[in-house]
Every structure is written in structure tokens, then in C-alpha cells.
Write a protein that binds this DNA or RNA. Structure first.
Lengths: 139, 139
DNA sequence: TTGATACATTCGTATATGCGAATGTATTTA
DNA sequence: TAAATACATTCGCATATACGAATGTATCAA
């Protein structure tokens, strides 16, 4: 029961839903990718990722100086049902559509993690991520 | 998006989940049924029912001096997925099991709405609901 | 018409949650 | 070693939410 309310609390925030939308689309992303695409501060992204991690919706993998977040497989078929429904609902939301095209442009411009997912570019490959473009922080 | 966070906020509270669990089991219940079975105050039940009504998860029908709450059909297949997942998860929770047996006992004892659902009794029928046993209020 | 019942709403308060600002930690580059 | 980068955490504040107590509004019985 506690586990269930924790899950729904995690899904009851627009910022976290927008982050999940990006992860549904890209599979995996680092914090600074999410910062740029959504225009969030680093603190804000980090806090929400901790929440999603705690709920075991996402996994965090440290690679060098980046932390790559990706979706975890749902632990039960029931949770899979809920997340599948969520995914289909969120795909239709206007903000979510906009965020996905922003993500697409960011990937083509050569972002951190998304770059490896971008098909039509001869640009940055994973190995070259060390020459990483500067993020535009707010604070 | 706003609609989605409203839905998940509605599901992110243990009291509302326990109420939904009863409605999954009984189909329809009045406020005082829920009060008795869960040991909630009338104010608490009423407030949570408003939330669930606002989210269009439940419907309220006024019958005489009772208000009968029942589950609505989900508006979209996507929402149906989410609620189906929720239902299966909550069915497994320990508290939810206990609440359902308490509901069962209450139905056999002749509660308001549940009485009409109780098969093994010659007791109160819907038409006789006016002779309604006193609720044990807290306040 | 008076009182009881069933439910809704308002009010003040306690707690939870989200936020930016500031700071801390690990990693990489120069 | 010093500076920069990527991310996490802490802190104080603003807002949201849940709660009981009190009150309001129908409905029905006597």
C-alpha cells in the first residue's frame, strides 16, 4: 500500500511526467540533457531523479563524470500495466509532444547521451563525449 | 497533462485507495457504509469522495437521503489500463484484504447499499433502507 | 413543525512537497 | 595541483494537502 502511494505520488508531478516522457522516447539520458531540453535547473532535475530512482522506475548508471538515467523494467505485470497506460496518455499531451521535438533537436545538435541514439549525423559518438558542449545553467 | 497529474494525485493517497478498493469489490456504496467499514469520519469520507468525483473515477447518485457512489467507466482505454493495473495491485495489499472482509461482514449485518448485494440474507432490501441502523460517529 | 439522519462545506492547523540558492563531492582537463 | 564539469544534498521558504471540529443543507419520520 505504501509502495503503491509512493508510485502514484511519483507520477503526480508534471515535471516528473515530462522527464519520464523524454525517457520513454530516448531510452536513456544524462541529467544535463534533461536540464537543457526541459529548461530545468540542475537541482530540480536531480531532486526529481532521486524520487524516480527511489520508486524504482528509473536506474542510474555512473559513466565517468555523467550519470545516465534509464527506465527499469517494471517489477510486476501490474506495475507494467499502469506504466503502459501512463505512457500512452502522456504521448498525447501537447507539452509532451513539444518536449519530444525539443529532445530530437537536441540530439541532432549533439547532446551527451542522445548523440549515440541519433542516426542521421556523423557527429559526436559516445567516445567523444569528453568534448562536451557547455550547458546553459540558470543559477 | 494537468488532467493526468490530477488523476495520479487522486490515486496517491492511502485513504482514497482503500475507498476505491471497497468500490472495486462492492460496485456501489453510500458514504456511511464507507465510514463504518474503514472507521473514517464522515468529513473525511466526504472530502475524499469529492476528489474522486472531480477526477471522474466515481459517480454520485442521490437516492432519497443517501448518496450512492459507484465506479464510472474510464473515459479512455489508456485510463482503463491504469485503473486495471491499480486494481490488481491493490487487491494484493494486506490492508485491502482486511477491508474487504470487513465490508463483507458489514454487508451481512445489513448495511445501507451493500445489503442489496448480499446474497445469503432475507434481510433489508433496498426498499427497507429507511430503517437504517445508527452509524457510530466519531465527532 | 420539530428532531434526526445523511452528506457537504468551511475553517484553522499540521505536515508534505516543490522550489531556488548555496554548498559539497567526484571526475576530468589543463 | 588548480580549475572546470556533472551531479547530489542541504536549507529556508512558499504552496498544497490532509485532518478534525464546527457548521450548513437536504430529506424523512413523528
Amino acid at each position: 500500500m505504501k509502495d503503491l502511494t509512493t508510485l502514484f505520488t511519483a507520477l503526480a508531478d508534471p515535471s516528473r511526467l515530462r522527464i519520464l516522457n523524454l525517457l520513454f522516447a530516448a531510452g536513456e539520458l544524462c541529467v544535463c540533457d534533461i536540464e537543457r531540453v526541459l529548461g530545468f535547473t540542475q537541482t530540480k532535475v536531480s531532486r526529481h531523479m532521486r524520487y524516480l530512482r527511489r520508486t524504482r522506475i528509473v536506474r542510474a548508471d555512473k559513466r565517468g563524470r555523467w550519470v545516465i538515467y534509464s527506465l527499469r523494467n517494471p517489477e510486476t505485470p501490474e506495475r507494467a500495466l499502469v506504466l503502459a497506460g501512463l505512457r500512452r496518455i502522456i504521448e498525447q499531451a501537447a507539452v509532451a509532444r513539444k518536449d519530444r521535438s525539443a529532445l530530437d533537436q537536441d540530439i541532432r545538435a549533439g547532446c551527451c547521451v542522445g548523440a549515440s541514439l541519433c542516426s542521421n549525423t556523423g557527429g559526436a559518438k559516445p567516445a567523444e563525449r569528453k568534448t562536451h558542449r557547455t550547458t546553459t545553467r540558470k543559477g
